[in-house]
Design a protein around this nucleic acid. Structure first.
Length: 583
RNA sequence: GCCGUCGUAGCUUAGCGGUAAAGCACGUCAUUGGUAAUGACGAGACCAAGGGUUCGAUCCCCUUCGACGGCUCCA
């Protein structure tokens, strides 16, 4: 057995301790233990509770029992068992399955005992738990369902999660970080910020975007478009449904059939809502014969796709059934693919960089030992992969390389984005596709007058606008940079007789397309300022006697506090510069 | 989909087998005004939907819809 760290041993020990405490309370003749490993931030144990019921409210009871028992957990004994002995001792079907597997592998079966509790185990515990475990450094977290061995065909067990660290300080830090993440939860913030909503009548996983939310979507999409237009992309547009024949040809009908929303027409034909755009786009390319001189053809299209995800998988904006993709496809010769992919690489860097994400590229490669699983010759693969590697290296990055992770039709670059509280999200991918052109017989006429098979590059930047918005909301805690804030500035007159002057400032900004709100509600100044602060608006300005006399306004920023007085022209100039810089 | 928790005004929540209450928000009026002022009045909920039990259900039971957490971590 390889060396397991102390923390892992502690967590593993706690899993046993919890199982033992659960046994005391619910009795081992009524429930069945299965397995309970150490995990990332703690441990869990999967238990078949039979007819017994357990909820989060019972956790305290179990935890108290654990604390009491811990004092007597001072030393371990272990012994080897024969298969029959073990099957008899651990008399339940789950343990039996494990025992048979261990025996089948020809390994020794061992049982570990501590504080009078014996469990099937390969070892890896703290030698003296009572002494080594700080009783304040762990807690039981939640009860959840989990399939036996993670397979949904198997029986659903009850999983009890615990969190455990070496010290109380670390436990508290973890809990604090989790609280911070909860505060930033886009599902909560997005509703408060009035960006989107859901309707029970429309259905689960189908977000509806408000005027403000739509504003943000359009601004994000506009930024991507700006970056793309500069390198020669053109917009296309396609219907949201198609005859099934398109997907039979592309291979998606087979692959996606469980995720497709299908439509039967009155004439008995079967259509489907599109779950992706590539097949449609191939048909735009295929409308005519292309000379190599006209390539690459670069088609960009922000459009929705629809996937019938399992209801239990849906979550806020991060997992939805109507997904807006900022999709694009480049149709080019294989020899031009690298240059095209580099352009996309740069767009991705610029886009995510603008929001302060740290990006880590990952290169997914073919598995040389299993060449028959891939389309094309190994030489083509090696060349394309080397080209991708060069793109990444050229940018001073060192890609993580994942052998065997490529799709069968081509290698790809994935990006991981690290957010403000240290979480990583899988974001954009750049994918080389040698399969789709094959299936749809896409070619160009080359210099020799012959038909040359082309390749396709999949190039979504945000991927899903919904998912990107969820990440962005949590990354910024809702404090959007000025340029995508649905409301950029609020004007707060101190008293009604200041409205006239304030209105002039409002008009000036409005004419310059600044998204400005006028707050003439009959509220106290303090209340209005407080409301502005809480609404995550980047700036607000106060106008009263002092300002009118000085012919100025007083500016306050969400991030920098009071910024003092300035003229409205200076204000406008400042805003325009900041918006242009996308800060 | 499956397991668990849950669904009461726009929001946050209270409540109980006899058809609902509060704070915030909202509306009107009055008073006020430089970083969370106050008063009065008012409007707003067939208690997620459908069915059942009951003399009677928001409350008990069933079904459906919807929300949240979990379903990768292998003695």
């Amino acid at each position: 057995m390889e060396k397991i760290d102390k923390l892992g041993n502690m967590r593993h020990t706690l899993a046993h301790l919890m199982a033992s405490a659960v046994g005391d309370i619910y009795k081992f003749d009524k429930i069945k233990l299965t397995l309970g490993p150490a995990i990332e931030n703690g441990f869990y144990y999967d238990i078949d509770f039979g007819a017994e019921k357990i909820t989060d409210k019972d956790l305290k009871k179990i935890e108290d029992r654990m604390l009491k028992k811990l004092q007597k957990w001072t030393a371990w004994e272990h012994k080897e068992m024969s298969k029959d002995e073990a099957l008899k001792f651990f008399n339940n079907e789950y343990k039996a399955e494990l025992i048979n597997e261990i025996a089948g592998r020809g390994e020794k079966i061992t049982a570990f005992t501590c504080g009078g509790f014996t469990d099937l185990c390969r070892g890896g515990h703290l030698e003296n738990p009572a002494k080594e475990i700080d009783p304040e450094s762990f807690k039981l977290d939640r009860v959840a369902g989990a399939y036996w061995r993670g397979d949904e065909k198997n029986k659903m067990l009850t999983r009890i999660y615990g969190i455990a660290f070496e010290t109380k300080t670390e436990l508290d830090a973890f809990l604090a970080q989790r609280t911070e993440a909860e505060k930033r939860d886009h599902k909560k913030l997005g509703l408060e910020m009035d960006l989107f909503t859901f309707s029970e009548l429309v259905g689960a996983g189908l977000p509806l975007f408000t005027p403000k939310g739509t504003m943000v979507r359009d601004l994000l999409d506009g930024f991507v478009w700006e970056l793309r237009e500069a390198v020669g992309y053109e917009r296309v547009d396609i219907p949201h449904i198609t005859k099934k024949e398109l997907y039979e040809k592309s291979g998606h009908w087979e692959k996606f059939k469980n995720d497709l929303f299908r439509i039967n027409t009155r004439e008995g034909h079967e259509f489907a809502m599109k779950p992706m755009n590539c097949p449609h786009h191939t048909q735009i390319y295929n409308r005519k014969q292309w000379s190599y001189k006209e390539l690459p053809q670069r088609y960009a299209n922000t459009t929705k796709v629809y996937r019938d995800e399992q209801t239990g998988e849906l979550s806020g904006l991060s997992r939805v059934r109507s997904i807006t993709q900022d999709d694009a496809h480049v149709f080019c010769r294989l020899k031009d693919a690298t240059v095209e992919m580099e352009k996309i690489y740069n767009i991705v860097q610029t886009f995510y960089g603008a929001f302060g994400f740290t990006l880590k590229p990952r290169l997914s490669l073919h598995d040389p030992k299993n060449m028959k699983a891939y389309l094309g010759t190994e030489e083509v693969w090696l060349n394309s992969e080397e080209a991708l590697r060069k793109i990444i290296n050229k940018n001073g990055e060192k890609a993580i390389e994942a052998v065997g992770e490529a799709a069968f039709y081509g290698p790809k670059i994935d990006f991981m984005a690290k957010d403000a509280i240290g979480r990583e999200h899988q974001v954009a991918t750049i994918q080389l596709d040698m399969n789709m052109p094959e299936r749809f017989d896409l070619y160009c006429i080359n210099e020799k007058g012959g038909q040359e098979r082309i390749v396709m590059i999949h190039a979504a930047i945000m991927g899903s606008i919904e998912r990107f918005m969820s990440i962005l909301i949590e990354h910024t805690a809702g404090n959007f940079p000025l340029w995508i804030s649905p409301t950029q500035v609020k004007i707060i007159p101190v008293r009604e007789n200041h409205n006239e002057y304030a209105k002039k400032v409002y008009e000036l900004l409005k004419e310059a397309s600044i998204r400005v709100e006028f707050d003439d509600a009959d509220l106290n100044l303090g209340t209005k300022v407080r409301n502005a602060k809480n609404s995550k608006i980047p700036y607000w300005i106060v106008v009263g006697d002092k300002e009118i006399e000085a012919k100025k306004i007083t500016l306050e920023s969400r991030d920098k506090g009071q910024l003092g007085q300035m003229s409205s022209e200076e204000l406008l100039k400042k805003f325009l510069e900041e918006i242009k810089a996308k800060k």
